[in-house]
Write a protein that binds this DNA or RNA. Sequence first.
DNA 1: TCGGCGCCTTGATCAAGATCAACGATTCAG
DNA 2: CTGAATCGTTGATCTTGATCAAGGCGCCGA
Lengths: 253, 253
Amino acid sequence: MIIALEPSLVQRSPPVAACVDRAQSSDCSNCGARALSVCGTADISDLQRLGELAEVIKLKSGAVLIREGDPAPHVFNITAGSLRVYKLLPDGRRQITGFLFAGDFLGLAISEFYVFSAEAMEASTVCRFRKGPFSALVARSPPLEHMLLHRTSHELAAAQNQMLLLGRKTAIERMASFLLDLPGHDPTRPSAPGHVRLPMKRAEIADYLGLTIETVSRVLTRMKVKGLISTTSPHELIVERPERLRQHAAGEV
Amino acid sequence: MIIALEPSLVQRSPPVAACVDRAQSSDCSNCGARALSVCGTADISDLQRLGELAEVIKLKSGAVLIREGDPAPHVFNITAGSLRVYKLLPDGRRQITGFLFAGDFLGLAISEFYVFSAEAMEASTVCRFRKGPFSALVARSPPLEHMLLHRTSHELAAAQNQMLLLGRKTAIERMASFLLDLPGHDPTRPSAPGHVRLPMKRAEIADYLGLTIETVSRVLTRMKVKGLISTTSPHELIVERPERLRQHAAGEV
DNA sequence: TCGGCGCCTTGATCAAGATCAACGATTCAG
DNA sequence: CTGAATCGTTGATCTTGATCAAGGCGCCGA
């Protein structure tokens, strides 16, 4: 039941400040626009104000951006790279609650303290906002607030799916669901249907699916034996029987 | 792994319409005010408009309000009673993702189809809104939208806690967390500290915690033996060692 | 009052997945 | 290029919680 501690946790990786590379308020119309594009109503003046509030932070791979329990003065928006969000138990058991990518927001929950931790999975960039000014701006910009509500309710729906997975699915069903949720085909190789890249390690998959690394490995092997998938490397696989995989994910025997 | 089907599921309980008791648009400043009170900014004109949009629906205990997969034309607000929200797998395995009470909203996720089911746990009343007019009103009322975002992000935080519970906690830790999340003392008997009412049956606790009814029963017995709790009836218990229970819930050995 | 049905509890056994252990493969620093 | 560390796979065994089974209790209607 004990999960091996990640190096970043054991050696109390450097506090955020050490990873911060304070840049000038860069032009936020890129990331802001990407964020707002969801609902199609980008308001230029809002974006400029967002830009004025933003502080650009660059994170090395593995850097801890947020530590659960710390005071929570900031809200973040990812502009490049990817983060893992997780919660820990005192003995090191870890549950990864999600993977976030460019455009996603973090830390919206109105609480005085962060209720989860977040680390960069690769070299990443985030925009940091003080909560006060950020919420003031949001309060003045209905489209912004609308976009946040839209995104948050989608995240909630995803969380409910994950609860079903964690509470009621078998190991193979969990893995099948996970594989199908990953971006189906590599954007750099759009001509390779069924090719899936597994950018994360086994420990991360395990902690996301509520399993152990051994079970993750065994399930992948079982899937290969069954002909559901084939692998070219530990981090690259091909879905051979998408339909069968979908059935497993849905819990249909 | 197969969960016994609830009667309501087996006998395809009557569609919502059968349970609907269309009332006049009643005065919504009560429920509306309760909902908005969270952020303290109740706008009377918004509430009146809400009232004009609302359709009051009365549900008998066990009635199905929402069935996953059905077209989703409505948003709901609970005004009395309580609902369970859940997802099913084809073979009947059920994961209850939450219990909702007066003031809570349902069906906000912008999707053409409901992504979960919802049933009344007792005789309940909800206000029903067509999504179109409802979102139009919300778009015109920043405080309303703000309130929804606030609530939704809190629900998301709760969902992340539940993911930790389902993915990484032991049976006793799950039950301890659950007992501590319940309203600590009965409002009708405020003088009874540690008294907890368990309004739901074992099957619902089990499906909420990702366990079986037998395990729920055994864990409660173990807790009694350990002196953590004592029971007066299957649906009423007393927390005898809140501190020890809290340690279990937190996963501290 | 009796009988039946849900609901809860308890016991015996089983199995999925965890744990413990060993070893190859890959990566990366020097 | 080389060696250490990390990562992934596989095997043996164990444990937790699921499954199968039986019986008790309480509630409700006749």
